[in-house]
Design a protein around this nucleic acid. Structure first.
Lengths: 253, 253
DNA sequence: AATGAGCGTTGCACATCCCGCAACGCCCAC
DNA sequence: GTGGGCGTTGCGGGATGTGCAACGCTCATT
């Protein structure tokens, strides 16, 4: 809509492919050299482009700094919340959002079930890391050495007969979760409670959070809960898109 | 230099701090709302800003994509080469550049000594990973679990009496290197050859490459070689600045 | 050593394109 | 139902970006 800005911004993807000199920029923009020069100068003043020794232009440090700062100031919780509400609205069950931090997985948001059944979870509380669906999702994305290190240091409390028994079983489960892109906890923490979860990913594809839907057997069976999987994954993907700033938000999908 | 572009670009750091609506952007820019709208629209078309559900503006995915693409297309070797030449010019010794890749450290560039002494290295050849200065620098920057994993899997060949004997000693050495920001190899690979090295860092502070200066005892003693440390570190820092696109290249320092 | 080509840079006059204004429509809150 | 706030639109005046041509520099060539 604004010609000048439009032209200036068109330079960025051009330079992302590799360094270019003034002539090349002007030609590929379809403008006079002097015009390209002024645009490049302005971009340069803002640190978005950098001039290297041979006078060619590259993308500058400011771009990285901006991207990083933006990521740091992004609040998953704030962005995810409306989606969690919608998911709760449609399923009626308890919805959790959790993140991984220094060896722990903690709940950072929760929308209570409409059914009058209490669940033993609290925002800020560390998750039962060896069995919870959200924990599996978050740990499954860690780089392999760290994943092994964490798995080796954990205790594996036998909450129920279905709890993860040891590190080997846990790592195997994480590999499955990593491959399929979703996770469950079928009575692994409390005998009568099942969960289905999916990961929220940032712009770089790394898992930044995980959400899950939990329901007790007395309300829905595990099979019935699993039919919500598309719903859960769809919500997680929608949050991922919104979080990473991608277009095509196309409703709640 | 270009008012319109200047204003448009000023929006980016503003949004990096967090989402803002049209009115806020206009106010903090000191322009009329309609002007801010047109600028934001242009930024939006290029994907640099993203409009979230509540109509507020955030930085968009394109920014992250650009930063990532730029990093991928950056060639450390190309950028570092002139600096390596200059360092060789000033010291007269052999200069190496190496990177870490999937458990190995390999030389990716080399400028031969002016003295008629051959060294057993080749571009593309894996480095003696347990003793070389560049290897220590690169491994010292790995995340702790991966560092331990790599150290545990290595062989520790006794090239000389001064070679690193085992994983424990190696990890201790890496901790020292990590803390001091430079590394040496004093006769650890070949009895009569010493090296001093320093790390090249990317925009995020991670070590992306390492360079070293090597010289045999018959030319300079280890003590004399160590006097080149400021020179070596200065060169590495200059490459880091250039590589990460930071301003103030101020000569070769 | 001289010469020319290529590139970045500058000043300028034209007219294009951006700016701010004011008015409209919409949504939400009261 | 009604008012205020916010995003949006069309428009004329004029500031601002544009392309041209000329300059100076560096580097490669003869």
């Amino acid at each position: 809509m604004s010609q000048t800005v439009d032209r200036a911004l068109s330079i960025l993807p051009l330079l992302a492919q590799g360094p270019a000199d003034l002539g090349q920029v002007a030609e590929r923009l379809g403008v006079h050299k002097s015009t390209a020069l002024r645009l490049l100068r302005t971009l340069h003043e803002h640190g978005l482009v950098h001039r290297q020794q041979d006078q060619r232009y590259r993308l500058g440090a400011r771009l990285f700094a901006l991207a990083q700062e933006a990521v740091e100031n992004l609040d998953v919780r704030e962005i995810a919340h409306p989606y969690l509400l919608a998911l709760n609205e449609r399923t009626g069950h308890t919805v959790h959002l959790a993140v991984y931090e220094e060896g722990e997985v903690v709940y950072i948001d929760k929308v209570e079930s409409r059914y009058p059944v209490r669940m033993y979870s609290r925002i800020g509380k560390p998750v039962a890391i060896t069995v919870a669906a959200v924990a599996k999702l978050l740990l499954a994305d860690l780089p392999e050495p760290e994943r092994r290190a964490v798995a080796a240091k954990l205790d594996y409390p036998p909450y129920t007969p279905r709890s993860t028994p040891n590190a080997a079983a846990f790592l195997k489960e994480l590999a499955t979760v990593r491959a399929q892109g979703w996770a469950t906890d079928l009575g692994g923490h409390e005998e009568s409670i099942n969960c289905v979860g999916a990961p929220v990913r940032g712009a770089d594809g790394r898992v930044v959070a995980a959400l899950s839907v939990s329901a007790p057997n007395v309300v829905v069976t595990a099979e019935e809960l699993l039919t919500l999987l598309p719903e859960v994954r769809g919500t997680a993907d929608a949050i991922s898109r919104e979080y990473s700033g991608k277009p095509a938000t196309k409703d709640t999908a």
